[in-house]
């Protein structure tokens, strides 16, 4: 049990992804859902970098992919927070259960 293999990283990433998914599905606050999406993206990054080290160590595909994931995550947080601020201005609430304009 004194070696760290790819399986350890994949299992760690699966548990972290599940924690993030639970937060996304069960939180009321819209900002909290954004935070949990960040956790899920980070779980994916752990996977990508572990694959890059153990399977294709000389090609850096996983690391370059992780750089793009980080870029997209940063853009997503910026736009997501702007949308939440715009909604808060109209609705005076960040509770996701009250965002029901598209229902009839």
């Amino acid at each position: 049990m004194l070696t760290i293999s790819l399986t350890h990283y994949v299992v760690l990433s699966a548990i972290l992804f599940s924690i993030g998914l639970f937060g996304v599905l069960s939180k009321k606050n819209a900002i909290s859902v954004l935070i949990c999406i960040e956790l899920m993206l980070n779980a994916v990054n752990i996977n990508l970098i572990a694959f890059s080290k153990y399977i294709t160590p000389n090609e850096f595909i996983g690391q370059i992919f992780a750089i793009f994931v980080i870029t997209v995550a940063a853009a997503e947080v910026g736009v997501g927070l702007a949308i939440i601020i715009a909604i808060y201005r109209n609705k005076l609430s960040v509770n996701l259960d009250e965002f029901d304009w598209l229902k009839w």
Partner: peptide, 21 residues
């Protein structure tokens, strides 16, 4: 930062995801 009403259902979905992965 509270939980909504779907917490138990979310727990089921997450347990399924975790089991499969």
């Amino acid at each position: 930062n509270l939980f909504n009403r779907q917490t138990f259902m979310a727990g089921g979905v997450v347990a399924l995801t975790l089991a499969v992965s």
